[in-house]
Amino acid sequence: MNAPDRYERFVVPEGTKKVSYERDTKIVNAASFTIEREDHTIGNIVRMQLHRDPNVLFAGYKLPHPLQYKIIVRIHTTSQSSPTQAYTQAVNDLDKELEYLKQAFEVEKNRYEERAKQGF
């Protein structure tokens, strides 16, 4: 009867920003990013990619509640970098990695079909 619409789980409501961030008031170079309508899929890859950056001192994400469809990514960096810079770099690197992976799949599919042809 009063069940929320199923699409509320993945459609960002109007007037809400997909990403927003808030700096930590007590620690320099620390910030929390709130990403609306995302879950472990995005949270975990961003966190792991941030861990590859030596300027990142801390990176973690949480899904505050299973019925609040958002994640919070917290980043603390050295003074050589900044949370926004590290975040942007991580997202860009992941995007490039997937672009590379897509090409690798296309090449490998052709190679596989070549192998299959020679096998017969």
Binding site: V19, R23, V28, I42, V91, L98, L101
Partner: peptide, 29 residues
């Protein structure tokens, strides 16, 4: 892979995403 890339594109930072208010600027960054 395409869908995951679309998701990553959607979570990129926009210029007006942050809280670059007085407090944030004051605390240094």
């Amino acid at each position: 892979i395409t869908v995951l890339r679309q998701k990553l594109d959607a979570i990129g930072l926009q210029d007006d995403d942050g809280d670059l208010g007085e407090l944030g600027a004051h605390l240094g960054g």
